[in-house]
Design a protein around this nucleic acid. Structure first.
Lengths: 107, 107
DNA sequence: TCAATGATTAACAATTTACTTAATTAACTG
DNA sequence: CAGTTAATTAAGTAAATTGTTAATCATTGA
């Protein structure tokens, strides 16, 4: 888990991951234009994310499309769930989350 | 969130946080003996965790007792929940988590 | 084939991280 | 009050991180 957290510990990388989760799949150029830094810098951030298993690559022509690996985010969710009994002690918030869960189940 | 993830990006700090979540509250000495490094090194890790809001301190005599700040872990849980629609696409695992939630609610 | 596009790798500099041992601070204890 | 214990801060160093520009690689298209 430390490696996963390390991958998300940089603001640029966190933004990239969040954008990819929203947009689904994007070529590097789209990420570069948002990142406010050079393409090589972004490329290396993507390498860190790749090596940590946070994102995967798909080549199409000269473009490389990136997307987030769902399991990696789920691993974080699982980590919090594992320790839920600790942090969920304040129940008001917990209930809000569970209510949302129940809504999903009922569908 | 990047700062929170950064705090957990180091194996020593992650271990400290996990141990504190299990044990509830511990003095620095207890964390040092587990960490396999010098007390000053641990002390600085604790400073990082403190400044990121992951742990809080309580002084009692010469001892300082540390515990995890539940909100900080909940913030991570909330972050994953916020993006649940993305990572929870594989439903078999999702159902396992939800089943656990329902068990908690029914109590 | 040659030039252009998209992306990564190389080389380098500046900063940050993460240890170590030594010194310091604070509180208890004989 | 002197000595001990618990922890932090200081000083110094080695390694990792993060950015830059320049160079390279691979694919497309005239």
């Amino acid at each position: 888990m430390a490696r996963t957290f390390a991958a998300l510990s940089d603001p640029t990388r966190l933004s990239v991951v969040e954008k990819l989760m929203q947009q689904g799949e994007l070529p590097v150029a789209a990420l570069v234009s948002d990142a406010g830094m050079s393409a090589p810098a972004v490329s290396r951030h993507l390498k860190v994310l790749r090596e940590a298993g946070l994102v995967t690559q798909r080549a199409e022509g000269t473009k490389r499309y990136y997307r987030v690996a769902p399991e990696s985010v789920r691993a974080i969710a699982d980590w919090t769930t594992l320790h839920r009994s600790f942090w969920a002690a304040s129940l008001d918030r917990l209930e809000a989350v569970l209510a949302e869960d129940r809504d999903l189940v009922d569908e």
